[in-house]
Design a protein around this nucleic acid. Structure first.
Lengths: 128, 128
DNA sequence: TTTGACTTTTACGTCAAGGTCAACGATAGT
DNA sequence: ACTATCGTTGACCTTGACGTAAAAGTCAAA
């Protein structure tokens, strides 16, 4: 049956605006089909959007996301390009590992904050 | 001896610009001392800057970072405020867990990309 | 004493990632 | 025929996080 999603359907699902999806198309991240002028999103488009949003959440820029998408749909054939890509991948990996560490440290801090809150609440609770 | 850091000393250490540090001061994130007009950064300022940059890396806005700093230097005493804070903490935690998952998924994908590169390189290498 | 490296403030510029608004077309329901 | 709903394009606007340039002060070395 090959389902199509409308633009608002997707904006509702992902909590984004139509402007955002049109912007992503302008930026060449997605290429939904058209019936007349209206966009028709296929499941593949939907999945791509999910990955774009994931990239966005971890702080990738549009340009970076576009680059990643490019690699997927048109992997480099030449040797030099491949080596270059592998370097970029290693860089990104290092960046992500750092970010993950930052997140874990911050999560640990949040634990402390929460504990401090609980302690304080107990004090107040006892006092009243 | 109570060491002081100069502004450029810190910009070099952290790979940021003087503009950034002055901006952070304008935004009320840091409060370096002064000798005349020139800023003098103490170790405590330095550590605070490290934490600011960590917040930045994981995508916190200046406003969010300021809020966190506030909580640390002036924790809420009232009960309602405490409960409110705990809710905010739980929200942040959920956000960070999501981000961590996003990062781990992306790291896994990077592994795949690298493997594909290696395979491809091997093919090319054999062919020549 | 002049050069160089550092510092300051003020103020306008920039860039990414959308928001917002206007003006309009297509389609369905009443 | 009118209204609602959903879609379109195009243009300008906004916000966050700084960049950049101007004009000037401080201090040590050559």
């Amino acid at each position: 049956m090959n389902k199509y999603y409308s633009i608002t359907e997707l904006t509702r699902e992902f909590g984004i605006s139509t402007r955002t999806l049109r912007f992503y198309e302008d930026e060449g991240l997605i290429h939904p089909e058209r019936r007349g002028r209206t966009r028709l999103f296929r499941p593949a488009d939907r999945r791509l959007i999910q990955e774009i949003l994931r990239g966005r959440r971890i702080g990738f820029t549009i340009a970076e996301i576009r680059e990643i998408i490019q690699v997927y749909k048109d992997p480099p054939g030449e040797m030099g390009q491949l080596r270059l890509l592998m370097n970029r991948v290693e860089e990104k990996r290092e960046e992500l590992r750092q970010k993950r560490k930052d997140i874990e440290d911050t999560l640990a801090e949040l634990d402390n904050v929460e504990e401090a809150c609980l302690t304080r609440l107990a004090e107040i609770g006892v006092g009243t």
